[in-house]
Write a protein that binds this DNA or RNA. Structure first.
Lengths: 139, 139
DNA sequence: ATCCTACAATGGACTTAGTCCAAGTCAAGT
DNA sequence: ACTTGACTTGGACTAAGTCCATTGTAGGAT
């Protein structure tokens, strides 16, 4: 069923009802929920799950590299289960909707060594901003 | 003295001691202070300045496009006065140090229209992550 | 099948970053 | 110098997240 669950089980994760529910909530493409949204959906399936557990579980998934943390604004972090293929994000400045995008080109290659200030550069995030069709239509 | 102050005055800003101090604190290259850091430095020059005023003033500068808000992590926003020339950021994953960088290439051109999902794309932020020489040396 | 125990879940207090607002203050035009 | 509306103040409030002592339980051992 869930690729995410399978991969987590394969890493020796102890499987609990809470972790199963969180993994189920985080399934699909273009999923970018906040921790509170994950909690709300998890509660619908398992009413006694606590906020702390949701935070712990999301944090562990991020540590394992199975979920990506996205901070597109200064509000709540969002969690993106689509960690297996590199991608970037397109964010609506009005409503906050996020889409995964796959631009051409490699931004890493665009940073010459004399612009690295001696850093060991390990990654790059690209965030496109704009207005989504829905917000454009409703003014 | 301060380009920033001149530009703000030119936009009809009422000039107060508080605004002057905030603008003075935000001066120079590679400046990326948090609101609290700005407040701490402002207090050194004008002891009675309040946190709320610092937040208000920074927010106005951002609205006027004279200062850029940078959220490289999920901690405090940082304020970058270097808004007149486009640039991106290189962030140390360990200590949070930020450097301005000017990569080659145009990430906007790398996003094909069939990856725009009908959005009107207005901007792009690129954040390189790595370890700074100082953190690499001290383990 | 039952027992053990290390790992996991709980919930409430706490922290950090930031916003809001009513009242007081002051820059700048007349 | 007066007036006025823009600006500042400080403290209460909110949102998002962390911490921790206690309680519960998955899964291997017996």
């Amino acid at each position: 069923m869930s690729d995410l669950l399978d991969r987590l089980r394969g890493r020796g994760w102890r499987m609990t009802a809470q972790r199963r529910v969180v993994a189920e909530v985080l399934d699909g493409d273009h999923v970018h929920l906040t921790a509170d949204e994950v909690h709300a959906r998890a509660v619908a399936k398992l009413p006694e799950i606590s906020r702390a557990t949701v935070y712990n579980t999301l944090g562990e998934m991020v540590t394992l590299g199975e979920v990506i943390e996205v901070s597109t604004d200064r509000r709540a972090k969002r969690y993106d289960p689509n960690a297996h293929r590199p991608h970037h994000h397109l964010v609506c400045a009005n409503c906050g909707t996020i889409r995964d995008v796959h631009p051409a080109g490699d931004p890493m290659a665009d940073l010459p060594s004399d612009e690295r200030f001696g850093f060991t550069v390990s990654g790059v995030e690209v965030t496109y901003r704009g207005i989504c069709p829905n917000c454009a239509a409703t003014g």
